[in-house]
Design a protein around this nucleic acid. Structure first.
Lengths: 257, 257
DNA sequence: AGCGTAATACTCGTCTACGAGTAATCGGCG
DNA sequence: CGCCGATTACTCGTAGACGAGTATTACGCT
């Protein structure tokens, strides 16, 4: 699963889809994508477009049809999709639809380091996200409803999907916000205390060390102390580090926010 | 918003977060990330790790503390986070949390070209996705429940978020599947007919050529004066090949399925 | 004691993404 | 009818992402 594509950029998928209808030159492809609102979720990157088309050609997925100037416009190359390209488009689509891939949304990355902010600031920022999210959702819903009157729903499924997922996100954020305001979230008090005093709460002291041992992994939490040699020396080193934790604490004192 | 980061890779965020606790050498950072399950959503790319650390150092966000071999292990460089790095971490986190960014999920890309598949194949593939999704969800739920016994929920919110969003995805897919099996989805019959006969259904004929005229796409920029979103009606183009082009016609004869 | 395997800690080179620039052409206006 | 700004169509350089490889050390097993 997730076979390596000769041309991996998703822009290539859009290019192939645009060329399946008829041969076009790159700039026209860009125009079509823009006209279809593709540039909303994926602003067109010119460098990538030409690289991607060139790569598609190199791999025989598209082929140049004609070149040279027509009318009075600058020179340009028109490409058509090849049989291999058509096959790639279909196969790629199959994979994208059938295989759920773990992705890495930026918000999730943000959540994973949320602890670096003070809880009340986190609360405020989450509120902002929710506001923006709701505004975007309202706009999306309106746009979708408008288009649903002109076009069969089949053509709108990716918009519907996007809407559904983002609604779920909004709901989830709302729930988290609620737990933060009511103080229901376990660990909240320690989080707050840590930011106020600068000291790691005793309940969390051992959590920081996970996976720092060689051969690491959660498993050897249990193994600690029975580890024969070498690893313990390593841990000892850490304790005697010239400016290790002290420097860290010193800096935290001067930290602005 | 979405200010350009000196080091844009999200891996850099994880690195900064790992260094905030204490100075570490790159390999140890990787070990920590792995131990915390970060490699689940983002398998560790060695090349990127060292490039990212080097870039962080170049921009003064981290600094080398010591180098040379300790114990009997190979040489290594230990890095600590700097004041600037701490500021960047905090600022970046703020942005990631507060600003919802339209992303480009692979599944959505797949949906947007779903028309290239026959409806019954699409149905089958969506079923496969749902199966896999449910299996993954079950595993995630179990893992989360396991961790929840050892660690305060605060450390698990990104996993909870991921779970919530993927559950929403599963629900949405289930709904779509239902509409496809019952035939309730408007446009389904035409989609099927098009794949069986190769002819564009008359209902869609007029939707076909929007935004493709030379000079076009841009010409209707005027229409969009009020709404920044493109005219989604143009989505109708998808999968409606005009039968005018010689190269295109020649190839279509040899097209499989 | 010696061998094989696993883990450690990187390095290097290729391949890709992308944006800032550039040159040609068009269309409109005075 | 010639100039100006917008549009068209692309090029190129740089920075980044990434994986395959490499060398060293530890450890179990016989």
């Amino acid at each position: 699963m997730a076979k390596r594509r000769r041309v991996g950029n998703l822009l290539a998928l859009a290019v192939l889809a645009a060329l399946v209808e008829r041969p076009r030159h790159p700039y026209e492809i860009a125009a079509v994508l823009r006209a279809r609102g593709k540039d909303q979720d994926m602003p067109i990157k010119w460098g990538s477009l030409y690289t991607v088309v060139a790569n598609l050609e190199r791999h025989g997925l598209v082929a140049a049809v004609e070149s040279g100037r027509q009318g009075r416009r600058p020179e340009r190359t028109v490409y058509r999709i090849t049989e291999a390209g058509r096959a790639e488009l279909v196969d790629w689509t199959r994979e994208l639809v059938a295989v759920p891939e773990r992705e890495q949304p930026r918000f999730e990355a943000g959540l994973s380091v949320l602890g670096v902010l003070r809880p009340d600031e986190a609360l405020e920022l989450l509120r902002q996200r929710l506001d923006r999210l709701e505004a975007q959702l309202a706009a999306q819903r309106a746009a979708l409803a408008g288009h649903a009157r002109e076009v069969p729903r089949i053509f709108l499924i990716e918009a519907e999907y996007d809407l559904a997922v983002r609604e779920a996100e909004a709901t989830w954020v709302r729930g988290l916000l609620d737990e933060l305001t009511t103080g229901a979230l376990p660990g909240l008090a320690e989080w707050r205390a840590w930011h106020e005093t600068g000291a790691v709460p005793p309940e969390w002291a051992d959590l920081a060390d996970r996976g720092t041992e060689p051969h690491g992994g959660l498993a050897d939490l249990a193994d600690r102390g029975t580890e024969p040699h070498g690893d313990l020396a390593d841990l000892a080193d850490r304790g005697t580090e010239p400016h290790g934790d002290l420097a860290d604490l010193a800096e935290r004192g001067t930290e602005p926010h």
